[in-house]
Amino acid sequence: MAHGQNLAIFRGRLKFKSNVQKIWGVLVLLTIVTVVEVFLGISRPAIFEEHHFLGMKLLNWIFITLTLVKGYYITWDFMHMRDEKSSLRRAAIWTPVFLASYLIFILLFEADYVHNVLFQGGYVKWNF
């Protein structure tokens, strides 16, 4: 934070007058996103339940996207990543993002494979 504060969000489209104002603005944004998530979680609209993308319900993709949006604003504005040097930003953010994506990719593929072998192949018996 030593280098002054960046008071704009949405790539400069929304500028705040002070840091305190920006904090409340981000709170409003996070609250809206949470309310949308809870609303979708309770109503579960059929249109998002029926359609699938890459093997997952559209609704789940929406939830994951909204979560990443929330994560971005918590890290960038509450943890002041926006004001840090890009070298620190890359070291602290891209490392776990890369490693976690890799982990998600291999483990979920493996789980899907295990599911197919066990249950489609009929190798599991639940009554004995």
Binding site: P96, L99, A100, L103, I104, L107, L108, E110, A111, D112, V114, H115, L118
Partner: peptide, 18 residues
């Protein structure tokens, strides 16, 4: 963060398996 990713992804593994 990596520890928590490990936890959450293993949850995903169990869930995709069952």
């Amino acid at each position: 963060a990596l520890t928590f990713s490990g936890f959450l992804v293993s949850y995903g593994f169990a869930r995709f398996k069952f």
